[in-house]
């Protein structure tokens, strides 16, 4: 009797969250799917009509689409490589006995808490600006010509900014994993004459494998959605040089008022994100048991 009562109460307690998320998931996604098959432009909203697969065809055959896919891949893979490799190195370093470890940790984690528009503007104006940035100051000091980062290397510049934002996250998670490493096992390996590199490859790296997987998958989800950093620095340009899929869809919806095209792009983004998500769910799901 009591358990039935509890079960009923539990259902009641779960319901609001489940219903809200169900609505949040089904309604907008259903509308996106609907609009993706409509000819609908906000500049001429009366002329709404059935489009069939036209929006998808139009979106996919747009030269900007292939550029956006390529840029998205470069952005995601570039940032992942930098953050995972440097993240492992920095985690190993600050796991050593050092003076002022607490402050070092605080300094390293800080970039993660800087909101994307501020991070992008700091780099754009303070660091990478061709006349007043610190990089330009250094270049002039060395007698070199300052680089106009966002004009000459737009995508690289954005990769640097985003990697700076996410390196703390990777470092922190990898450090957490590192700290749970069995010290005795390490000592035993050292006694048996295993060198530093061999200990790293055979003990440390396998121990961190799960954390590395989690870093890669979670970052990928966020990196696919990079937006504000592009908006305040390059606006996706020059041309489409730094337009990713998110920015391309934003441009279709908000600047070209092409609701149908943006919706088709949105559905394509969902499919791509789901491919990534499947892997994440598997990795995280194991932890539940």
């Amino acid at each position: 009797m009591a358990t039935r009562q509890t079960a009923g109460l539990a259902r009641l307690m779960r319901a609001p969250a489940i219903i809200l998320l169900l609505i949040w998931m089904i309604v907008p996604l259903g509308m996106t799917l609907y609009y993706s098959f409509q000819n609908y432009n906000l500049l001429n909203p009366a002329a709404i009509s059935w489009a069939g697969w036209f929006n998808y065809q139009y979106f996919v055959t747009d030269p900007a689409f292939m550029a956006a896919i390529r840029n998205t891949l470069v952005l995601v893979l570039g940032v992942l490589t930098i953050t995972v490799v440097l993240g492992i190195a920095i985690a190993l370093l600050i796991d050593k006995p050092i003076w002022g470890q607490g402050i070092v940790r605080i300094l390293i984690i800080s970039p993660f808490f800087v909101m994307p528009p501020v991070a992008a503007l700091i780099w754009k104006n303070m660091i990478m600006h061709p006349s007043y940035g610190v990089f330009a100051d250094i270049a002039r000091f060395l007698g070199l010509q300052p680089v106009d980062w966002f004009a000459q290397y737009p995508l690289t510049s954005i990769v640097i900014i985003v990697a700076w934002q996410w390196l703390p996250f990777a470092t922190l998670i990898l450090l957490t994993a590192l700290q749970s490493l069995d010290g005795e096992q390490m000592e035993a390996a050292e006694m048996d004459g295993a060198g530093a590199i061999s200990r790293f490859v055979h003990l440390t790296l396998p121990h961190m494998a799960r954390a590395i997987t989690v870093v890669i998958l979670i970052q990928t989800i966020f990196l696919l959605g990079i937006y504000a950093e592009i908006l305040v620095t390059t606006n996706g340009g020059p041309g489409n040089a730094s337009t990713n899929l998110t920015y391309l869809i934003y441009r279709a919806a908000r600047l070209n008022f092409d609701i149908g095209g943006a919706a088709a792009g949105g559905i394509i983004a969902v499919i791509l994100a789901n491919l990534v998500a499947i892997f994440l769910m598997r990795a995280v799901g194991k932890n539940l048991d």
Partner: peptide
């Protein structure tokens, strides 16, 4: 239910920008 909730987080924001 928990896994499904997590999956809603995987939906890219830009996919529902239009609606």
């Amino acid at each position: 239910i928990l896994m499904w909730m997590l999956s809603t987080k995987m939906m890219p924001a830009v996919a529902v920008l239009v609606p």
